[in-house]
């Protein structure tokens, strides 16, 4: 008898579990964004602050830029925050987004093992540096996932005139994972890798890797923010989404971004153009 009561109790518990809702009753918007903004902890810092301020919950989905653009085009977001300017402008031009705003930037850095077999340390010219990597056939870990970072990296190889597809599987390794996954792989196999500075600074599994090349203007990494077009997807919460964007672009929002620190270092540099009222 006891056993039967016990069994039913468990079933009942499982059911009651399912009927209670976890979500708070606050109004919310969905933000499609990139792994770099999540893995650095920026959202964990920014979003609760906005929730206090505006009483709106921002639910962030962190995926690669390619997937974020795709999900937003399907209407599965209210706001899009990514870093691939050309694609973002195309997204708006095709009518999926209302308008694109510069939000902030950081930069990409080239990392490698302390031995630095291709001898690129301290180079100020990123294109020369990656030519050396290719010439040495030193192992390079690429995101290979169509993300903003990946697109940037492919641009650099193209400028250097190196056909990495031909080297894929030999010294050019495409991980197909997020930034963190790719960093784990690079530090694991002792290969060179390109990362946004923010993710690298907050990354905990460094294994002696260092920044070897930085500061080339071609390594600039601009983030943009876009409201998904309610004319295209009627259920988009345009007002809530626009309010969130307006706050980020405002003086107070920009200062909040600038104040975000990991290990004492500023990770993102706000650069929104002052909005004309």
């Amino acid at each position: 008898m006891f056993a039967r009561v016990f069994t039913w109790a468990i079933c009942a518990a499982a059911l009651s579990f399912s009927t209670t809702t976890a979500a708070a009753d606050l109004p919310f918007i969905v933000l499609q964004s990139t792994t770099s903004t999540q893995d650095t902890g920026l959202f964990n810092y920014l979003l609760p602050m906005y929730r206090e301020l505006a009483g709106v919950e921002v639910r962030s989905v962190a995926v690669g830029t390619g997937q974020a653009l795709n999900n937003a085009a399907n209407g599965d977001a209210d706001v899009l925050l990514v870093h691939a300017q050309a694609d973002e402008e195309k997204f708006v031009a095709e009518g999926f987004g209302v308008e694109r705003f510069d939000l902030m930037y950081n930069d990409f850095v080239f990392l490698g093992p302390p031995e630095d077999q291709a001898n690129i340390r301290g180079s100020k010219d990123i294109v020369e540096a990656i030519k050396k990597i290719a010439a040495n056939e030193a192992i390079f870990a690429s995101r290979g996932d169509d993300s903003g970072t990946h697109k940037k990296e492919r641009e650099l190889w193209a400028i250097a005139g190196i056909d990495v597809d031909a080297a894929s599987g030999r010294w050019y390794r495409e991980t197909g994972g997020g930034m963190g996954t790719t960093l784990n792989i690079a530090t694991g196999i002792g290969g060179y890798v390109m990362s946004d500075r923010a993710t690298w600074i907050s990354f905990k599994n460094k294994r002696g890797f260092e920044i070897l090349v930085e500061g080339d203007p071609r390594l600039f990494n601009q983030y943009g923010i876009i409201l998904v077009n309610p004319k295209r997807h009627p259920h988009v919460k345009a007002e809530l989404g626009q309010a969130f964007i307006d706050w980020l672009l405002s003086e107070s929002g920009q200062k909040t971004i600038a104040d975000f620190r990991v290990d004492g270092q500023q990770l993102f540099h706000p650069n929104a153009k002052a909005k004309v009222q």
Binding site: D39, S60, V61, A62, G178, M179, G180, T181, F203, K206
Partner: peptide, 21 residues
Amino acid sequence: GNINHITRVMTTAIALETSKG
């Protein structure tokens, strides 16, 4: 979507912490 406080479960949290190193 691994949204904090909404849809983050054990396995997605493990994936996230791994990608943070």
